[in-house]
């Protein structure tokens, strides 16, 4: 007892996000992996809502779950990947992957073990609400914002150029 509603929600969300994240890498079927990743994105959006960052949560859903994952699903469906036609990986590749992944895990663990994170008061910050975010973005950070939009523009132009070359 003694758990607040927020802690219960946080616990449930965290458990689901860890299970679905494991599902992404453990499932044999790529389509199931994509679906697990979508569930993970939803739970992360849930965490954003817990932090009172509704805008971030909904944009996370729109961009990642609604757009990028659809493209992933597209590619996987059209290539028709499945367990039977997956090429057999060489065994040294598996060992290399396991060792480098484990090393990264150790480094992260070492770095975060001693880290001192000041807890955020849940619900106390209003920075994630859309009007505050917009004002901050367009007053304080307007130059970086515009620079990143140029980056997007160049990506769009690049896509059009690649598309035109074939025609």
């Amino acid at each position: 007892m003694g758990m607040s509603l927020q802690q219960i929600v946080f616990g449930v969300l965290s458990i689901i996000s860890i299970i679905s994240a494991l599902g992404v890498i453990l499932s044999k079927n790529p389509v199931t992996s994509v679906l697990c990743l979508i569930v993970t994105f939803f739970t992360i959006a849930g965490h954003y809502i817990m932090l009172n960052a509704q805008f971030l949560a909904v944009v996370h859903i729109i961009v990642y779950a609604g757009a990028i994952m659809v493209l992933f699903l597209f590619v996987i469906m059209l290539m028709n990947l499945n367990a039977e036609i997956e090429p057999q990986k060489r065994s040294w590749l598996k060992y290399a992957g396991a060792i480098s992944g484990g090393a990264l895990f150790l480094v992260l663990l070492g770095a975060l073990r001693e880290a001192d994170v000041t807890p955020i008061q849940p619900g106390a910050t209003d920075i994630g609400l859309i009007s505050n975010l917009g004002k901050t973005l367009f007053n304080q950070y307007v130059v970086p914002f515009e620079v990143s939009s140029i980056l997007f523009l160049s990506a769009m132009v690049g896509a059009v150029v690649i598309g035109k070359r074939e025609a």
């Binding site: 509704q54 805008f55 909904v58 944009v59 859903i61 779950a65 609604g66 699903l73």
Partner: peptide, 21 residues
């Protein structure tokens, strides 16, 4: 909610999964 329209966008963008799957 103060992001009502974005919520609708989020849900609409998920609508495609049912058809694709």
């Amino acid at each position: 909610i103060n992001i009502g329209i974005l919520y609708i966008f989020g849900v609409v963008s998920l609508g495609v999964y049912g058809i694709m799957l």
